[in-house]
């Protein structure tokens, strides 16, 4: 489903950042109709961040929703946390799991990191998470910089009521 990296159709949101310029190409995206000058910058907010209390002592996983009210796409490129040894963006596949280098957030759109799909794998949480506790996550976006969010530690089997179907895609 992923377009090859050479695909540059309809480059949208050529926002100039300090020192570097990034192009995000979204094939067929409606926002491609706007010129780079006309598109408003990405405006990112992150909500519903949670970490299910893990059944495995040395690892956990984080999920959250990203919404973008801006006119330009953005991309989550990494996650870090002062409470973990390492954090990685992963995607569950049909039979396994793969590390990914980013998660796209379309202009005027949203993306869910949800059970059975894209998630943040957290290794070596210190101290061990407790129910109700908050764990700080620092999300790095290509255009919007760092967004800090407090993920709530939820019960192991918690499913957010806003997402009755895990891994459903959002529009």
């Amino acid at each position: 489903m992923r377009l090859p990296r050479t695909a540059l159709a309809g480059a949208a949101g050529a926002a100039v950042l300090a020192g570097s310029l990034a192009l995000t190409a979204c094939g067929g995206s409606g926002s491609a109709a706007g010129t780079s000058a006309a598109a408003s910058p990405a405006s990112i907010s992150v909500s519903n961040a949670y970490i299910p209390l893990s059944a495995t002592p040395d690892m956990a996983v984080a999920y959250f929703d990203i919404s973008n009210t801006g006119g330009s796409a953005d991309r989550l490129t990494g996650v870090s946390s002062p409470s973990v040894q390492s954090a990685a963006l992963n995607r569950s596949t049909e039979t396994s799991m793969e590390q990914i280098d980013g998660v796209d957030v379309p202009a005027h759109g949203s993306t869910q990191l949800a059970r059975g799909g894209t998630h943040v794998m957290l290794m070596g949480l210190k101290p061990a998470p407790k129910l109700g506790q908050h764990v700080q996550l620092r999300l790095s976006f290509q255009h919007s910089g760092t967004v800090t969010v407090e993920a709530t530690v939820q019960p192991l089997t918690y499913q957010p009521s806003s997402a009755p179907t895990p891994a459903s895609s959002t529009k």
């Binding site: 489903m1 377009l3 990296r5 570097s20 990034a22 895609s169």
Partner: peptide, 17 residues
Amino acid sequence: LLAACGSSSGSSGSSSG
């Protein structure tokens, strides 16, 4: 930096979804 989105809906979670 060049990045290609997955689809017009842009939800990268949709492949696993």
